[in-house]
Amino acid sequence: MRFKRTRSGASLKLKIGAVAGLLFLHLPLLLIFLYAFTTEEKSYQFPPPDYTLKWFGVVWERQDIWDAFGLSLRIALIATGAAIVLGTLAAAAVARTRFFGREAVSLLIILPIALPGVVTGIALRSAFDIADIPFSFWTIVLGHATFCVVVVYNNAVARLRRTSPSLLEASLDLGANGFQTFRYVLLPNLATALLAGGMLAFALSFDEVIVTTFTAGQQTTLPIWMLSELVRPRQRPVTNVVAVFVVIITFLPILMAYYFTRGGEATAGHGK
């Protein structure tokens, strides 16, 4: 008996619900782009009375914005580098060895990204105060690394669990030493997972504001600068222009990470 396949499209209600959900998620972002071009300085009038590009020139000439941008960029790069090293080592230990409490260790590694940022920030601030560590550039890096490690770890441990140990054994049997096995066998299998995890970690670190607030001291990252500008608004379109650049800077690595993990089954943590 032969069965005829039928294709049923989504119902109208489901389509409307999907469109409404997408608008709810992305309409605020579109408004940021819109008000980056408005001529109105201190209020949000819809529709904007007129449009201009002058705020992009104002942002370009503001040294305080460039200083905050440079600080955020350096912190994100260093925190991402540390996360790649520590997350990969932790993933290798959990995925390739068996020891008592392995699952508990895995849970503790993942825990920082599951906790509210306020809790993580308070905990780090208390630890720095007890250890008498002054708040500086490095305290922000340490704070960001706590959750960046989780993203890299999730990606690396998933890839390691899918990589057959027999590949490493075969490499060693054929005369390769440990470094050669890592370079020619393990690293090519981990490369896309580490790249995706690193880009996600960079995006998370670059726009982090809650943990940074508790660990920055007198340092002003770009998200902290934006927050202070919103609290004491002078030129709202300037903040919107900076927000546009932040969206672009964080969207590109997330898009690339999605490209490398779009299969879904190859890498964990791709949905964060």
Rank of each mutant, 00 (worst) to 15 (best):
R2F: 05
F3Y: 13
S8F: 15
L12D: 04
I16E: 10
L23W: 03
L30A: 12
A36C: 09
S43L: 11
P47S: 00
P49D: 13
Y51F: 15
F56I: 11
V59Q: 05
E61T: 12
Q63L: 06
D67C: 05
D67Q: 08
L77H: 08
T80G: 00
T80H: 00
A82Y: 13
T97A: 01
R102G: 05
R102K: 10
S106V: 05
I110C: 07
P112K: 09
A114S: 10
V118N: 04
A131H: 08
D132R: 11
F135N: 04
S136W: 00
S136D: 00
H144P: 04
T146I: 10
V149Y: 05
V152P: 04
N154K: 14
T163V: 07
S164K: 10
L167T: 04
A170S: 11
S171V: 00
D173I: 04
G175L: 07
N177A: 00
T181Q: 05
F182A: 09
Y184W: 10
L187E: 05
A191K: 13
A196P: 12
M199F: 14
D207E: 14
P237W: 04
P237L: 00
A243V: 05
I249W: 11
M256Q: 15
M256K: 15
Y259G: 13
R262P: 02
E265G: 07
A266P: 07
G271R: 15
